[in-house]
């Protein structure tokens, strides 16, 4: 057991815990997006920031990836943390404004303005789907590609992956997809319509990489322009194909 100083309180934690795990143990609420207990931590969404170190030489770090060390000083809701976190939420809103997860975060932390042009890309590149596929489902069908502002998640060459078993884990875990998907039939409450239709989407859209990809429903792993390319290649009906 080692000692860290958490919000001015000396507490005991297990060696090897991340700061986030320590905070959760002691009941401190730290917002997260790309974190999932059953998957390895990624540290990409920058929501779980905490302020580390003795003032004035402090820095911010993602608590999900920062390891606890003897004597570590951690503060969870300083001005710097709040300002940075709120900006992260504002950025997320500009990417995925329709995601209830992001909307809830905005509402909870008082992010009231959205000063960036909205892109409606839905994918926040949190990587949960990648880690789900790789670590839980042992699929390794999807992954990160490119870098910087061009980064995206997709299958190799943006076509149906040989190793994809259509388990749906990626859709299940996606924070942008959650509580939102409406599909082509908005009255359907449970999004499984594609498998219930006759013929099922999986049969028709053979080259699609996931059966949720259709007319802009999810398809987070396939970007706008790739949508068009795939639509054309697979001869999707115009009313079903999103331009």
């Amino acid at each position: 057991m080692i000692t860290i100083i958490l919000n001015n309180l000396e507490v005991q934690v297990e060696e090897g815990w991340s700061v986030l795990e320590a905070c959760k143990f002691y009941g401190l609420e730290i917002p997260t997006l790309c974190y999932n207990e059953g998957l390895s931590p990624y540290g990409g969404c920058r929501l779980c920031l905490v302020e580390i170190g003795k003032p004035p030489n402090t820095k911010l770090a993602s608590s999900c990836t920062y390891p606890c060390e003897e004597g570590l000083i951690v503060r969870t809701d300083t001005k710097r943390v709040i300002n940075a976190r709120n900006m992260m939420i504002e950025l997320m809103l500009s990417i995925a404004p329709n995601s209830k997860t992001v909307q809830d975060l905005a509402s909870k932390f008082g992010v009231k303005q959205l000063r960036f042009t909205v892109r409606n890309e839905e994918c926040l590149l949190c990587g949960l789907c990648v880690r789900m596929c790789r670590e839980q489902m042992d699929g390794k069908a999807i992954g990160f590609q490119n870098r910087g502002h061009n980064k995206k998640i997709s299958t190799p060459f943006d076509i149906r992956s040989e190793v994809c078993r259509l388990c749906g884990g990626c859709i299940y875990i996606c924070p942008a997809c959650q509580l939102r998907c409406h599909g082509p039939n908005p009255d359907t409450a449970v999004c499984n319509a594609c498998l219930q239709m006759d013929p099922t989407c999986v049969d028709v859209y053979d080259q699609a990489q996931c059966w949720m990809y259709d007319a802009g429903r999810c398809g987070t792993c396939v970007r706008e322009d790739d949508n068009k390319k795939n639509n054309q290649e697979q001869g999707l009906r115009p009313d079903e194909a999103k331009s």
Binding site: G44, R46, L91, F144, R147, H149
Partner: peptide, 20 residues
Amino acid sequence: RDESCGKCLSCREGTQRLWE
């Protein structure tokens, strides 16, 4: 924004938005 590895939202989106 081109050279960012793209992991951190703050860097990836941040440099993109600053650039915009």
